[in-house]
């Protein structure tokens, strides 16, 4: 199968900028915002979002990462996976508005794990979800609040998100 480009570097940048403004709009400012990325590429996206957010409303948004490996429901069905890192900003998440960030939203199971992981770390006031690509095929009642691009796919297709910090190039392809 051949890979087809869905988003180029400029598209990704524009999507992240738009999502940043949407986050600020729905939160009515940047007060109490905590951006948590889900490893691996969600963390990169979260860092980029926090840079844009802090440029719009300087110095108010904190960023971290939330590993969900230990909370997955498919651990027994796959080879043992090495967990990623969880780093919570110094202020914690109690009473904050947490925005979870991931690259692709598919079955929704990763987000379910993330919600469980989050509840063990504290009690946020609200939890929102931002994803770069929503490819559909949800298996759980979960939806994203902020979406870079809705991408109707078939389950046999593969979505690849590559980001410059990790893969050396910014692109989203479908194959």
């Amino acid at each position: 199968m051949t890979a087809r480009h869905v988003l180029q570097q400029a598209d990704i940048a524009r999507a992240l900028t738009r999502i940043s403004h949407e986050i600020l709009e729905s939160n009515r400012g940047a007060a109490g915002l905590v951006i948590l990325g889900i490893p691996t590429r969600g963390v990169t996206l979260a860092t980029r979002l926090s840079v844009i957010l802090n440029a719009i409303e300087p110095g108010t948004v904190s960023v971290g990462s939330l590993d969900v490996t230990m909370y997955r429901d498919d651990l027994a069905k796959n080879p043992t996976r090495a967990p990623g890192r969880t780093t919570i900003p110094a202020g914690g998440i109690d009473g904050k508005t947490v925005v979870l960030v991931d690259d692709v939203l598919y079955s929704g199971r990763t987000i379910r794990s993330a919600l469980d992981a989050l509840s063990d770390l504290g009690r946020p006031r609200t939890v929102r979800l931002a994803v770069l690509v929503d490819r559909g095929h949800r298996e759980l009642p979960i939806r994203a609040d902020f979406v870079g691009k809705n991408l109707p796919t078939s389950t046999s297709e593969r979505i690849m998100v590559r980001l410059a910090e990790i893969d050396g190039v910014d692109e989203v392809t479908i194959e």
């Binding site: 651990l75 069905k77 080879p79 043992t80 996976r81």
Partner: peptide, 13 residues
């Protein structure tokens, strides 16, 4: 315990 009990027990990541 995580290493031994999670996963299918075959290959490991």
């Amino acid at each position: 315990l995580y290493h031994l009990l999670s996963g299918t027990g075959e290959a490991r990541a």
